Simulated assay, not measured.
Amino acid sequence: MNQQIIYFPKDGKPTVIANKWQVWDGERDEGGIPDLEHGFHKVLVPFHWWITHHKNADVLDKAGKGEIGAWFAADDDILKHADIIEDAKFLWPVVGAHFPIFRDGRSFSTAALLRNRFEWQGEVRAIGDVLIDQLLQGARVGFDAFELRPDQDLGIGLKQFDLYSVTTQNSWRDTRSTQAVA
């Protein structure tokens, strides 16, 4: 669990901010979410857990207060559960897409689907085995927050966004550059 993340809003500059969200795996839940009274006050719950608990009054209460978001596993079929996501879209301030291992790129597709098909306006966070090498691609497809793997340097991560001044593909952030490069 990182104390800081890289936050890169669509129309802003990348910066390092405090991480206020606990990513919870849903295991050993003993019937409920982690205690939000001590430590972190906001939690990202696994989407598979949300599916079975989203109608519980205490879960809806905490979600309504902006204390619960959800994260999607790389193999979650979000199109299959579009109705649940549409209903929760206005409750979740943050969603995460989990990279189980850096070379598994399925979560890039999750971010793109959330932005393009679901018209997700809130934060989409990359979580799990996230390396600085993935930041530019992630920012292009729809991620605006990155919880890097603990051995990754946040300062070097920030510098990744300054590597290129011209974009050759359209992205969630903007359209490709139309100016010739000298």
Rank of each mutant, 00 (worst) to 15 (best):
G157Y: 08
G138N: 09
D35I: 00
A57Y: 13
T15Y: 02
A145C: 06
W71L: 04
S109P: 07
R115C: 13
I5D: 11
K89T: 01
R149A: 12
A57C: 04
K20G: 02
L154S: 04
K65L: 15
M1N: 07
Q179A: 15
P14I: 03
V95Q: 04
K62D: 12
R125I: 10
K20P: 04
L136Y: 06
A73S: 10
Q3K: 15
K89R: 09
E27D: 05
V181P: 00
V181I: 15
G26Y: 01
R28V: 02
A88R: 01
E86W: 14
S165R: 00
E119S: 14
K13A: 09
V59N: 01
S177V: 12
Q169N: 12
E86G: 09
A70T: 00
E86A: 14
K55R: 13
F8A: 13
L44M: 11
H98K: 02
D151W: 03
Q160V: 08
P46S: 05
W120T: 03
N2R: 15
Q137W: 07
V59R: 02
L79W: 04
A180D: 01
E30M: 10
G96Y: 05
H54W: 09
Q137L: 03
L158W: 10
R28E: 06
G128A: 06
V59D: 01
G69S: 11
F146C: 04
N19R: 12
N116Q: 03
K13D: 08
A88G: 06
A182F: 14
H81S: 07
V59M: 08
F146T: 10
G155K: 12
H54S: 08
P14T: 07
D104F: 01
A88E: 01
D104S: 01
D104A: 01
H81P: 10
S177Y: 07
R115L: 14
Q4K: 12
K42L: 05
Y164D: 06
D144Y: 06
D87Y: 13
D61R: 13
G32R: 07
V181T: 04
D76F: 04
R106M: 14
H38P: 08
A111R: 00
